[in-house]
């Protein structure tokens, strides 16, 4: 009975993981711009890996009776949990810095241009959370540029 329950849990996790993974791929293909694709792909990457990994750990422990495989699968999960969101974060930040402008649902740009995108990437998160004050961000960065110039 308990064996059947464990199996059922593992299969359910596996199916959920497959749904995650495939929906992430569909998002990657169908979403309109880079940032929405990134959103879909990175979330389902991490989530799908987590869920499928848990299913595989359960299988390794209770069906294959191979605890080494379970430990290795756990390590894979741990590393993916750290590296995959970090890579997505770095990718979004670099894309913004290099001037990729996010688009809204109709395909209109949400920012004035590449310059403003890279300004956003270089400002503190708190600054664009409070109303996206372009002027203030620009002033700040100008001040930092000047300081850097003075030091050298």
């Amino acid at each position: 009975m308990i064996d059947l329950l464990i199996l059922l849990v593992s299969w359910a996790l596996m199916i959920v993981g497959c749904v995650f993974v495939v929906s992430g791929a569909v998002a990657l293909v169908r979403m309109p711009d880079l940032y929405t694709r990134l959103h879909g792909a990175s979330l389902t990457d991490t989530g799908g890996t987590l869920v499928i990994g848990l299913a595989l750990i359960i299988q390794a422990l209770f069906v294959f009776d191979n605890s080494m495989a379970a430990v290795k699968m756990g390590l894979i999960l741990l590393f993916t949990l750290f590296t995959s969101p970090t890579a997505s974060h770095a990718l979004a930040k670099t894309a913004l810095l290099c001037g990729q402008v996010p688009l809204d649902a109709k395909g209109n740009p949400l920012l004035d241009g590449p310059e403003q995108a890279s300004l956003l990437a270089r400002s503190r998160p708190a600054d664009y959370r409070h109303g996206q004050d372009k002027e203030r961000i620009a002033q700040q960065i100008q001040a930092l540029d000047n300081r850097g110039g003075d030091e050298s």
């Binding site: 810095l97 001037g99 402008v101 688009l103 740009p109 590449p114 110039g149």
Partner: peptide
Amino acid sequence: GDKTTTLVVNSSADDGSIASPNEMKRYP
């Protein structure tokens, strides 16, 4: 103390959201 670097704005996009090709900028 050298706080600036050159940054090559990615020039190979087809969707027009990028500045002119091979534009060099100095960013912190």
